[in-house]
């Protein structure tokens, strides 16, 4: 071993935008993710426990993504309002992670504290088909964990859950951008809806800022 060269210190490595060529194949991601799901599946007693486990796996990733995206953002401002942080997540964070914005950001009609981020082709379920005995499982739970991590790190604590929702006939993604449509794959039958339910204190703070 070369003694003159100190072990590469992680703090010396550049954090700037990676080289343009950077990226791995979607397959490589899918293989690793599938192993992550299988690993947790082997240890979870129920579907909801599996989803919780995937969420907590994503949570730490979300915290790190927030720091990374915030560091790289040109203007160094911090989002303090509810709508702007949601917008930040559905456009900025989404673009960083998936190369496209989320397909839509909606506000729940029934509950003022609930918002929905919709993605028609989340990469975590590209090659996944959920067997019927796992019923309502949404393997995009990992992404909801990431969203929760980002939001929590930014001071907007929220409960985020992933749901697979059947795509109605004739329904088309608003943006029409098939970010991860893979050639040779059948069109998706379900879209992912990430339900964001903010904590009461976040809402009251936002209401106070409104004045």
């Amino acid at each position: 071993m070369n003694l003159n060269k100190a072990p590469s210190n992680i703090l010396d490595r550049p954090l700037d935008r990676p080289r343009s060529s950077d990226g791995v194949s979607l397959s490589a991601f899918a293989y690793i993710y599938s192993e992550l799901v299988q690993y947790h599946q082997g240890r979870a007693a129920s579907i909801s426990e599996l989803e919780r486990r995937l969420e907590s796996a994503g949570y730490g990733v979300g915290l790190k993504i927030l720091e990374l995206v915030a560091y790289r953002a040109k203007e160094s401002k911090r989002e303090t309002r509810l709508m702007s942080i949601l917008h930040f997540v559905s456009s900025y964070v989404w673009k960083t992670l998936f190369g496209k914005s989320a397909d839509s950001l909606e506000r729940s009609i029934d509950h003022a504290d609930e918002y929905m981020i919709v993605d028609y082709e989340p990469i975590t379920s590209t090659f996944v088909s959920v067997p019927s005995d796992l019923g309502q499982l949404s393997v995009d739970a990992y992404l909801s964990g990431i969203i929760a991590g980002v939001l929590d790190g930014a001071g907007f604590s929220a409960r985020v859950t992933a749901h697979s929702v059947k795509i109605e006939e004739g329904e088309v993604p608003p943006t029409g951008s098939g970010g991860f449509s893979v050639p040779g794959m059948p069109p998706r039958k379900e879209k992912a809806v990430f339900l964001v339910k903010f904590s009461p204190e976040v809402l009251s703070r936002d209401a106070a800022l409104e004045r």
């Binding site: 791995v24 979607l26 990733v61 993504i65 998936f98 190369g99």
Partner: peptide
């Protein structure tokens, strides 16, 4: 088809 290397 590609995926983000950092997410990976």
């Amino acid at each position: 088809p590609k995926a983000n290397a950092e997410l990976f």
